[in-house]
Nucleic acid binder design. Structure first.
Lengths: 155, 155
DNA sequence: ACCTCTTTTGACCTTCTTTGACTATAATTA
DNA sequence: TAATTATAGTCAAAGAAGGTCAAAAGAGGT
């Protein structure tokens, strides 16, 4: 791991695993102290690595006894999970969010690494050769169709 | 060895060998300093000597903790077959021909049935939502990129 | 010499990370 | 209830990589 954000990301994911794989609750300042960084770095890590697209939900509370709770989205039911992703995609999706979604599907073992690479290639900026906002619309269209196929080829 | 680029090329290949023959991860600025050249020379070396066609895959990340990772990929007889398909595709391809090509890859065991379905979904007429001839152009672009990753993602 | 191809350089660009000042909210205490 | 304390959130600037592109320089061939 090369930078603080990556290290903290791994640490949090480990915490989630250690506590049954579903949820973890932290104190922002405590983690910041442990890794000797400013507290707001935790916000950065969460915003870039624990988004909905990544398959996480984050809740928090300020003030005394405050906390940040990261919950891993349930993927027990593949169909619900994939429907959820389709909703996130909607009518347009950035390359960044598309990457997150594809990565999430891989991590949740809905697709293989090779499938992930194929899908990624199909929705890359350079591949789509279109100007915004059409590019994001097209990317969304492709992703939604691909997710449908993944869904129906599971049974 | 006559020039810097050749020297750096050899050096990187040596690094790959030394680390088990598969992959090497470098810091661009570090190598540039070691060989007393500008950082962008590394990009030149990589672009001219570590391309897909040469059998390498290159990934990189910017920002703090950035890196360039060069991975050696074994390419077998598949490469000619896939290059042939890419040629067939050219700058534009109909849905029908795309289907044939995808089918062919499946029959030749270059892709699985699920991968075939995914690729099909990505290049369907309804997915691409574009008028001819742009649709065929886009389909070709997607297919060519996908074939590239299929070719260079074999471990 | 002249032309072409390759290499070398550097100015400028894009992306990702780190940091900190300022803000918002909840709990506790006076 | 008001003030204080304890948390977390936001945002923008600074910092840290790597990427691009085109001009200049070098090497070979005719």
């Amino acid at each position: 791991m090369r930078n603080m954000s990556d290290i903290i990301e791994q640490y949090l994911k480990q915490l989630i695993q250690d506590s049954g794989g579903e949820v973890v609750e932290i104190k922002r300042a405590h983690i910041a102290e442990k890794f000797d960084c400013v507290p707001s770095q935790l916000n950065y890590v969460i915003k870039t690595r624990f988004t909905n697209e990544h398959g996480y939900t984050v809740e928090s509370k300020r003030g005394g006894g405050g906390y940040i709770r990261i919950t891993k989205v349930e993927t027990h039911s593949k169909s619900e999970y994939l429907a959820h992703l389709k909703k996130l995609i909607g009518d347009g999706v950035s390359e960044q969010n598309a990457n997150r979604i594809i990565q999430s599907m891989f991590e949740n073992e809905v697709i293989t690494i090779k499938e992930a690479k194929i899908i990624n290639a199909a929705v890359e900026r350079e591949t789509l050769m279109l100007e915004l906002p059409y590019r994001d619309t097209l990317r969304a269209s492709i992703l939604r169709r691909v997710i449908d196929v993944i869904l129906y080829s599971e049974e």
